[in-house]
């Protein structure tokens, strides 16, 4: 452990104003990328499912028309 106390760890030897923002920005990017990935996937799947349902419905309509 390079620090004596938790307060010293937070203070970063007077460089807290530089160290924490640099780490914060990096973590923000990593988390942002992961969240964006999930959002993108979810939106894509919703669209694909909607399309599949529509196709199934259209196929059903076509069948009914043929049988009637």
């Amino acid at each position: 452990m390079a620090f004596d106390s938790f307060a010293a760890f937070l203070a970063m030897g007077g460089h807290a104003a530089y160290v924490w923002p640099a780490y914060g920005a990096t973590l923000l990017l990593l988390i942002g990328v992961v969240l964006h990935l999930r959002l993108e996937r979810r939106r894509l799947w919703r669209e694909l499912r909607r399309r599949a349902r529509r196709e199934r419905r259209q196929a059903g309509d076509a069948n009914r028309e043929v049988s009637s």
Binding site: M1, A2, F3, F9, G13, G14, H15, Y18, V19
Partner: peptide
């Protein structure tokens, strides 16, 4: 937390 601070630049 564990790596030593640099002798010139300190914790930055």
């Amino acid at each position: 937390a564990f790596a030593p601070a640099d002798y010139q630049q300190g914790n930055s």
